[in-house]
Design a protein around this nucleic acid. Structure first.
Lengths: 252, 252
DNA sequence: TTCGATTTGTTCGTATGTATT
DNA sequence: TAATACATACGAACAAATCGA
């Protein structure tokens, strides 16, 4: 098999380093290397793709910036892992109003199979009525129930996912997606608004019926912008805030 | 004057490219080059700092990633400008629930001098009671009043800023900070929560007294993490969302 | 309009340093 | 210690975009 990306004398449309980047991403999406595993050394990749090592480095630089890969001097370059820390500091943005970020505890409230409603179908880019898995999760910080998550995922992506697996997962949900199903959540888009909480939410979080809450609709994506999860979170923000830094690491 | 950052044969503590980066940042903070102006060409900087052009490029790469500089092939490298687009797509995250981002129109409601209350003092890192300027701004999208901003800035940073200047500004507020006072807002941290709207907000936005609204507390920073503005926004999110992408450009 | 000078963008290669195994 | 892998730094050559003569 010829892995070379450049053909002598002929110039491609996009820069070489971007084609290398795409190629690595494609292998990643194909499950060529699993999370936490090292990808081949820069010199190896340079040979395989028949480009200079500088070009490989530039491609990897971009993937590291996107938090898809992680470099370790002297050890190698690894597929990013969604460990506790990453999930918490990257995808979990709720923090006490005047305090430090605490680890939330999670409690599975319900689990069922179902069919995608229009909103879920649109978010997950699957047909209406396609089989999905639904579950509800309650998060507490320092013993206080604060967040109710309603999560929907396509059944096709998570074969065999059941209530026991979810309940007994050792770490975060995204960590489970990764270790059990090989699905890496690498980005998410969220839409937030304020609303009064519904009865169900009020009951789950112990709130009065008209309490204003923060509702977050999140679509989580894997490689190639494939949506893998749709989640609606209801957050009691009476004593907590949703944190967002603009321009800290460029872009968002 | 000797601008060299490296001394022959001696290695510094931090990498050379980072020292170059810091040096450029320092010149930027000192107002050496104003927004929109080009910085010297890479070859010039390489000579000035007595490093290779590759090292200068790496330093500039980081500043470009942080959106502090902008490169244009064939023209040069420029200090980032807060034009309409940047302010809108970078710092303004409110969008119609089922639609595209629209340009908001702004209306100055009030302007006054005052003294920093404890929250403002803490956010702006100035003493309590230090002189500040306060103003309120109402933003509308497609003719509908949606957002009430209460803004506080230290008087010391904005000498001569008055109501007329604010009212007649041609573009965004951050654009005014930049063109009139040489202050560049390069990042911001925001804390969001849901609450019922206060009487004043209800009046300004034409809402019922108990409508749930999204409150955003933003601290805007210039170079060297110096806070320059404290802003509390009240957003009517009945038909609009606050948009946030996690992991799109790495980091946030 | 053409041409040349300037500036950043891309790609290559080499040498050396530092961390890990 | 030796081998391996990434990190830093240097520089060359050419491409592509821009701008002014």
């Amino acid at each position: 098999m010829d892995n070379r990306l450049a053909t002598a004398g002929v110039v491609g449309l996009s820069p070489l380093y971007r084609r290398v980047e795409d190629r690595i991403l494609k292998d990643l999406a194909a499950g060529q290397w699993r999370s936490g595993e090292p990808i081949p050394a820069e010199t190896k990749l340079a040979k395989r793709f028949d480009v200079s090592i500088g070009t490989v480095r530039k491609a990897i630089d971009e993937l590291v910036a996107r938090q898809i890969l992680v470099r370790h001097q002297g050890r190698g370059t690894f597929v990013a892992v969604h460990d506790e820390d990453r999930a918490l500091f990257y995808f979990f943005r709720v923090v006490a109003r005047d305090g430090i970020k605490k680890y939330p505890t999670s409690e599975l409230l319900s689990f069922s199979e179902g069919r995608a409603d229009p909103a879920q179908a649109a978010a997950l880019r699957i047909p209406r009525g396609a089989p999905i898995l639904r579950f509800r999760n309650r998060l507490a910080i320092e013993g206080r129930a604060l967040i109710l998550d309603r999560i929907a995922v396509p059944q096709s992506l998570f074969p065999g996912l059941d209530e026991a697996t979810l309940r007994e997962r050792p770490s975060t949900i995204y960590s489970l997606y990764q270790s059990r199903f090989g699905i890496n959540v690498i980005r998410a888009s969220e839409r937030l608004h304020a609303r009064t909480c519904a009865r169900e939410t009020a009951r789950a979080l112990g709130l009065a019926a008209d309490t204003p809450i923060l509702e977050i609709r999140r679509i989580a994506y894997s490689y190639n912008d494939a949506p893998v999860e749709y989640r609606i979170s209801q957050v009691d923000t009476r004593d907590h805030d949703y944190l967002n830094d603009l321009g800290r690491n460029a872009g968002t």
